[in-house]
Amino acid sequence: MEDFKLDDNKDLSFNKGDLNIDNTDQQNIELILLSHKGSFKEFPILGVGITDYLKSPEIISRLRLENEISNQLEYDNFEIKEVDVNNLENIVIDGNY
C-alpha cells in the first residue's frame, strides 16, 4: 500500500518540499503495534499497545499478544500468514495487505 512516509521521529517525511509517498506496509504494522486503543480517532478500537505486553514475560501474556496482534492487523485488512511472539526481541509477522 502506498501512503505518506513518516521519518524516524514519526513526522511526515519531505523530499525537496514534497511529501514522500512510498510503500508503507511495514510502517502501518509498526504504528498499529505501538499505538494503544483510542490513538486513531477514526478507528478507536485499533491498536495493540505492545509495550504493555512486553513488561510481562508470562506465556499467557505472549498468547494474548499474539492473539491481539492477529485481531488488530485483521481489523486493518492485513492478511495474516503467521504471527510468532516466542522471541520478544524478534516478533515474526508474515502476511500482506
Rank of each mutant, 00 (worst) to 15 (best):
L63Y: 03
I80V: 07
N67K: 13
E2F: 08
I69C: 07
D25Q: 06
K10N: 13
R64N: 08
E89S: 11
Q26E: 12
L12Q: 07
N71F: 15
Y75M: 07
K16Q: 08
L19Y: 12
N77L: 07
K55A: 13
K16S: 14
L19K: 08
N67Q: 12
E2N: 14
N9V: 00
G49H: 04
I59N: 04
D25L: 15
N28A: 14
N71Q: 12
E30L: 05
D84P: 13
L46S: 05
V48H: 02
Q72V: 02
T51V: 08
N87L: 05
E58K: 13
S13E: 07
E42W: 12
K10Q: 12
E89R: 09
K16A: 14
I80D: 03
S39D: 15
G17H: 06
R62C: 00
I91Q: 03
I32G: 00
G17N: 05
E82C: 03
V85G: 00
D22C: 05
N15C: 05
E2S: 15
E74V: 11
D3L: 00
V92N: 07
P44L: 03
D7A: 06
F43C: 04
L33P: 00
E42Q: 13
D3K: 13
I80F: 04
D7I: 04
Y97D: 08
L34N: 10
N87F: 02
G17E: 04
D76F: 09
N86Q: 00
R62A: 04
K55F: 05
N20Q: 12
E68L: 01
I69H: 03
N9A: 13
N20I: 15
I50P: 01
K55W: 10
R64H: 07
Y97E: 02
E66Y: 03
K41L: 07
E58A: 10
D52Y: 10
K41Q: 13
Y75K: 09
S39I: 02
E30W: 08
K37A: 11
D22I: 00
L54T: 02
S61M: 11
K41F: 10
L12D: 01
G95Y: 01
K55V: 13
D84E: 01
I29K: 01
L63P: 00
I91V: 12
E89A: 09
Y53C: 04
V48N: 03
D8W: 09
E74A: 04
V48A: 06
S35Y: 01
E30T: 13
K5A: 15
N86L: 06
S61D: 09
L31N: 10
K41Y: 14
F43T: 11
N86M: 11
D94Y: 10
H36N: 15
R62S: 09
E82L: 09
D84L: 08
D76S: 12
I45K: 13
D7H: 11
I50F: 00
D52V: 01
L34E: 13
T51C: 14
Y53V: 07
Q26A: 10
S61Q: 09
I50K: 07
F4M: 07
E58F: 09
L46R: 09
L54C: 09
E42F: 08
E79A: 08
D25N: 05
G47H: 04
D8A: 14
L31F: 07
V48G: 03
L46I: 10
D76W: 08
N9F: 13
N23H: 10
H36G: 08
N77Y: 06
P57M: 06
N77K: 03
L19A: 14
Q26R: 06
F14S: 11
E58P: 01
D3T: 06
N67S: 15
L12W: 10
